[in-house]
Design a protein around this nucleic acid. Structure first.
Lengths: 116, 116, 116, 116
DNA sequence: GTGGTCTAGACCACA
DNA sequence: GTGGTCTAGACCACG
C-alpha cells in the first residue's frame, strides 16, 4: 500500500479499515491482525498501528481485549451508522466545495453525471 | 474569518482566495491587498500571508511586482482552468470516496439528490 | 560556511546541496541532516533550513517522510538531469552574456581558453 | 523590454546600458536620454532610472551635468576596461560554476563547444 | 527526535 | 509603502 504524504499515515490506515468494515471485507466480531503483524504488512512503525487501534477503539468501531487482540465491534448498528456517517461526510464535502465554487445544486449534479 | 484548526491557516487562506477568484469576487489583474494589510484584516502574522502569496505566485494565479504589490493574474485561461481543476478535485474525492464505500454510480447520484 | 550577502542564504544553501548531490558527495537515498542539525552546523535559523528542504522537496530532489527525516531522491534520473540542468544554465549565462558583449562564438572559446 | 522578475529592474537596465556602451551602440560622450524620457520608454518608475544613472555615475561610466543631462564618459579607457571587466565576470562565473559541478577544464570547454 | 506551522518582530531592497 | 528574508522561539503532529 502506498501512502499519500500529505495526510497522516495513521488516518489513511483508519480510513481503509473503516472502508473494509463498511463493505464487509471485515465482518462484525472478526479478529483484527495484531499490531506487530499489521505494522509488518504495511511496513509502518508499530506505534502508528497502535494509534490506529486506539482511535478505532475510541470510536467504538473496534474493541480490544487485553492479551487477546483487537476485534471489530459486534454491534451491527455501529457498522451501519458508520456507513451513513462516512458517506454523509463525503457528500457534505462535495456539496460545500461545489457551492463555494459557485455551482448551483443543478449544476453540480449535471457536472457529476458528466464526469461519470 | 475563522480557521479550521486542523488545516494550516495558510492553506485555508489560499483556498479562500482561489474561490474568490473563481467566483469573480477577485477579478483578473486586480490588485490584492498588501501583505501587511491582509495580515491585519485576517489577524494573522504577515509571514503567513507572505507564504500565501508566494504559493499563489508559484501557481501563476497571482503575480508580484517588486515594491508594487501582488496582482491577480491577467490570464483568463489560468482562471478558468483553476475552476476546472478545483471542481475536478472535489468531484474526484466524491466519486472515489463513495466508490470505496461500495456505492455504484447510480446509487451515489441518488444519494446526492436525496441530500439536496 | 560563509554566505554571500547579496543572495538569500536559503538559495545559497540549496545550491550547495544540489552541487553536493551532483558531484556525489550526497548519494541517492541518503538521509540528509535533520533541520535542526543542519541549522546548527550552518549557524542559521531552523526556519531557513526548513525552507531549503521544502524547496528541494518541491523540485523532487529530496523527499521527506513525516517524523522520519529528509532524504536524497532515489531516482538517479532526477540527479543526472539535475546536473544537466545546472550546467545548461551556467553555459547559457556564459554564451548569452558574451554574446551581448559582442563576442563571436570563436572569440568566446578563445577568451575562455586564454583564461584557463 | 521585458524584465526578469527575479533581478532588480535597475540592475537589468544598468546591465543593458553597459552592454550598449561596450558594443558601441552608445558612444563616448554621447548624451543619454533624460530620466523622464527613459522612464517613459521603458515604462518604469522615474525613481528607478534615477538610481540607474546615479549608479552609472558612481562607476564613472557616465557623468551628469546639472541641468544638462547625463552623458557617456569620454574616457575610452573606462569603456575598454568596462568590456574586460564584464567579460571577466562572466568567464569567472562560468568557470567557478562548472568547477563546482565537477567539470574539469577540458570537460567544460568540450561541453561548451558541444553546445555552440 | 523529526518535520510543519505560526507568531513576533526586525532589517533590507525596491519602486 | 511594498514584498523578501531572516532570526528567535514556540507549539504541534507524527513515527
Amino acid at each position: 500500500m502506498e501512502f499519500n504524504n500529505n495526510i497522516p499515515i495513521y488516518l489513511q490506515i483508519i480510513d481503509n479499515i473503516k472502508q473494509d468494515i463498511v463493505v464487509g471485507k471485515l465482518k462484525a466480531g472478526q479478529k483484527m491482525p495484531s499490531v506487530r503483524e499489521l505494522a509488518g504488512t504495511l511496513k509502518v512503525n508499530p506505534n502508528t498501528i497502535q494509534r490506529v487501534y486506539q482511535e478505532l477503539d475510541r470510536e467504538k468501531i473496534t474493541y480490544t481485549k487485553r492479551g487477546m487482540g483487537t476485534y471489530v465491534t459486534e454491534e451491527e448498528k455501529t457498522i451501519s451508522s458508520l456507513k451513513e456517517e462516512l458517506s454523509k461526510k463525503i457528500i457534505l464535502n462535495f456539496v460545500e466545495g461545489m457551492n463555494k465554487l459557485g455551482f448551483s445544486n443543478k449544476e453540480m449534479i449535471n457536472t457529476l453525471k458528466e464526469y461519470l
